[in-house]
């Protein structure tokens, strides 16, 4: 059993506008869901109340329409807040209880015709964004981020002078710089991807994430606790290293 779980595919999560996460179930489904359950369990409250978009392109392609419904039921059974579906023809869901889920997030029309085009394009590439207003590509916050507050800045880096409290979160399109203690969550690279980093003066975080990778506090242990740390992507894994 243990061997099986070790070999389980890593479920990758892709940051989306605001805090929606995209999950893309893959075959074999039993293994994917067991890996997903493990991640949900390991990530504490990360998934609670977090909007989820299901990318069912692969499911439809390999398993056909029946598989789509099985997967949707599977996701629903996990009490996820499903807010949208990607990669399936809206006609397929017509008349089912998932009919009302938006299928055209980001203004992309996901009919069967455009679906083929989309699929041809490299999946990870961010869709062309409107050019950001010149000169404003960073956000400076010169006071502590309190528990329960959420700073979301998609257009670039976020700099915080003060601490990020336990139960607070900072989500940035680029890198996150914290001149203080990070005790809550920081998720960087919503737009910049794996080149984004997180810097903090004192690591006491609950969760850090860059691009599609994240780690909870139990992953890095005592050695880094309380130290000045940077978090970066290194060959597909999240690496935390101390400055001092």
């Amino acid at each position: 059993m243990a061997v099986e779980t070790l070999a389980a595919p890593h479920v990758t999560l892709r940051g989306r506008t605001f805090m929606a996460l995209v999950v893309a179930p893959e075959f074999p489904m039993a293994e994917w869901f067991s890996a997903f359950d493990q991640q949900m369990h390991g990530a504490g409250g990360f998934f609670i109340d977090r909007p989820i978009v299901a990318d069912l392109g692969a499911t439809l392609e390999e398993g056909g329409p029946d598989a789509v419904f099985i997967v949707l039921e599977g996701l629903e059974a996990r009490q996820l807040r499903l807010i949208g579906v990607e990669g399936v023809d809206p006609v397929l869901l017509a008349g089912t209880r998932w009919e009302r889920l938006p299928k055209t997030l980001h203004g992309r029309v996901q009919t069967l015709e455009t679906w083929a085009d989309l699929h041809a394009a490299p999946h990870d590439e961010p869709s062309p964004e409107p050019v950001a207003a010149p000169g404003v590509s960073s956000l400076l916050i010169d006071r502590p981020v309190r528990s329960g507050q959420s700073i979301v800045f998609e257009d670039g880096d976020v700099t915080i002078i003060g601490a990020v409290a336990s139960g607070a979160e900072v989500i940035a399109g680029g890198s996150i710089h914290i001149y203080g203690a990070l005790r809550g969550r920081a998720i960087a690279g919503l737009r910049a991807g794996d080149s984004a980093r997180i810097f903090c003066r004192k690591l006491e975080a609950e969760l850090v994430g860059v691009d599609r990778l994240y780690r909870t506090a139990e992953h890095w242990g005592e050695a880094l606790h309380g130290r000045s740390v940077q978090v970066m992507c290194d060959r597909g894994a999240l690496r935390l290293s101390a400055f001092d």
Partner: peptide
């Protein structure tokens, strides 16, 4: 206590907004 401190932090955030 940690729980009280975290709740106070939340309240301070509300006082500020």
């Amino acid at each position: 206590e940690v729980s009280s401190v975290r709740d106070s932090d939340r309240i301070i955030g509300m006082l500020d907004s």
